[in-house]
Design a protein around this nucleic acid. Structure first.
Lengths: 222, 222
DNA sequence: GCAAAAGTGTTTCGTATACACCCATGC
DNA sequence: GCATGGGTGTATACGAAACACTTTTGC
């Protein structure tokens, strides 16, 4: 019996993306799946995920959380492999275009695109579970900010929520709610994205959030 | 590297209890820990937990859910053992007084009692995580009923919430809230527990809840 | 008749929701 | 000057929270 880790890495640019790897050689040549690999003898599970991601894609996570452990005896046709799945969040504007390694190519896909790819093993199940968790957590934890650049537009935050939760949001009420937490700070800069009125950029005050959290505060959106 | 499962089994009678096992022989003779054991080659993780619990205590769970996987290289001093932790709920009125097996004795302890026991390995961490999850889930899922007899008093449900959440509850508002879901059914029986006015017993309509859940209903207490 | 637990309504307050117009810019 | 996205306030409705007395039984 072998122990592996797999990671669902979420990125956001206009829409939610997932990081996938494609195998260049056998076994499963051309197959697409989540990044992951076996756990080494003397490393923790968290370390194993970070190492695999570094090796395969070289990216830096803003957030990482254990998701669920998948252990059905039939999940890998070759031999019994139990996999501890994680999900992570990255700021895609910080990610360099990645080529992958000798054995794999890495790229981003939207949820919709993934559906038609038929991921190897039970990786679609893992992805579904990660999505469920991400959607739930978005409403009671400030993890959306880990998908955005340090300085972001309010509208980006709003679109992120709309696109991940998959339902419309009232702009005015959303702003009121978020602002009521007093966790966003204006940078003073205005950015013009080409069209329309230029918008203010904000940063999320994580330190203040952690402080509030310690005192029992629970951020609650919807 | 070995793979194990461990279970935090919660029971309720007047207060929240946890099922523990005490080892009769070496290694760790006299040590107290959570029930658990190694996963067999061809069984799923869920099956492994159920089997271990059956072997060690013979009890029947009303609810079982995977909790978290603990994989620090140092968590077991003998060798690398990764453990997938579960938590389960039982109706203690259905549990026979258990003797345990050849190698172990099983018994119930309250949270407070456990604290002074110094559980083996990282089992106190596992227990803390299970408690956290149980408390959270109690407010948005109908899992309290899995700790009670099929027919229960409303006051038992209320005391269960008070004792698990660890804070007072307004009796009237709590009843209003629970009753508004329309998921409890009167049995028509009144039970006198010795002192005070006899009370009605209720059953929880799980079928109806599942039905509502499918349609997007989310039970929300507090 | 008193101790003990069960059962029950109303008012108040805060927050979620619904909703539409003006503003600053690029072209 | 018009198209595009940014920014803002108010009224209503609903649900959470606060709060105390009566009822039924055992002793």
């Amino acid at each position: 019996m072998k122990l592996a880790v797999d990671a669902v890495v979420f990125g956001y640019s206009k829409d939610l993306n997932i990081l996938l790897v494609e195998r260049k050689y056998e076994p499963f040549q051309g197959g697409v799946c989540l990044p992951g690999g076996f756990v080494l003898d003397n490393e923790s599970l968290d370390d194993a995920v970070q190492r695999e991601l570094r090796e395969e894609t070289g990216l830096k996570l803003n957030y990482l959380e254990q998701l669920y452990t998948f252990g059905s005896p039939e999940r890998d046709s070759r031999e019994r492999i139990v996999s501890v799945a994680y999900y992570g969040l990255v700021d895609r504007t910080k990610v360099k275009p990645m080529g992958g390694t000798d054995a794999e190519v890495a790229y981003w896909k939207t949820i919709e695109e993934v559906k038609s790819l038929n991921l190897l093993f039970d990786h679609q199940d893992i992805l579904n579970k990660a999505l469920e968790r991400l959607r739930a957590k978005l409403t009671y934890a400030p993890i959306g900010f880990d998908l955005l650049p340090k300085e972001f537009l309010f509208s980006e935050l709003e679109h992120l929520y709309v696109s991940i939760l998959g339902r419309p949001i009232d702009r005015r009420n959303f702003r009121k709610k978020i602002m009521s937490f007093d966790l966003l700070e204006e940078t003073g800069k205005k950015v013009s994205e080409g069209k329309g009125r230029p918008a203010m950029t904000y940063t999320f005050n994580k330190k203040r959030y952690k402080e509030l959290e310690r005192n029992g505060f629970v951020l609650q959106i919807f």
